[in-house]
């Protein structure tokens, strides 16, 4: 049984103010899904890191926000999309302390540690998409094969 088509919001990432807006929207969505305070904070922080990456390294882009429903489980998926230069060496970019933007180099690797699911898709010259997903804690994951 699959979830009904989930509502999707699309937010632009083109300025400082957009970063703040993305943080607020993600916070609201996570709270609405019943995420605990710590999980909310982690997810919003990850979103902030990734949105800043989209802005600084990708030259701007957008984030797509999708609410997920699988059985009793509720989740939130965020896809950060840019059409920037892409990442030539993904493994290197995922290394702690690696930076090209004058930050602390914790953006990608740190964001990955803050969420449950993380995928990065990048093609040099075409852009980067980072997708993260978090599920509300305290509920069993969808049943796979109960009698």
């Amino acid at each position: 049984m699959h979830a009904p088509p989930a509502p999707t919001a699309r937010l632009p990432i083109a300025s400082d103010a957009d970063l703040a807006w993305v943080r607020q929207q993600v916070r609201q969505a996570a709270a609405g899904l019943g995420f605990g305070l710590v999980q909310q904070t982690k997810l919003v922080t990850a979103a902030s890191e990734l949105a800043r990456n989209t802005l600084v390294h990708g030259g701007g882009g957008h984030v797509e926000m999708t609410t997920l429903e699988e059985g009793a489980a509720r989740g939130l998926r965020l896809s950060f999309v840019d059409n920037g230069p892409g990442i030539r060496d993904v493994d290197l970019a995922m290394t702690d302390g690696y930076t090209t933007g004058g930050g602390l180099g914790m953006g990608l690797s740190g964001a990955k540690r803050l969420v449950q699911e993380f995928t990065l898709d990048s093609r040099p010259g075409e852009g980067t998409t980072v997708t993260v997903t978090d599920w509300a804690a305290g509920l069993p994951s969808p049943r796979t094969g109960a009698p």
């Binding site: 305290g138 509920l139 069993p140 049943r143 109960a146």
Partner: peptide, 14 residues
């Protein structure tokens, strides 16, 4: 009701 029971168990574990 089976899945409701599972949910209850998960909450109680927490």
């Amino acid at each position: 009701s089976v899945s409701a029971g599972e949910e209850l168990i998960a909450r109680q574990q927490l």
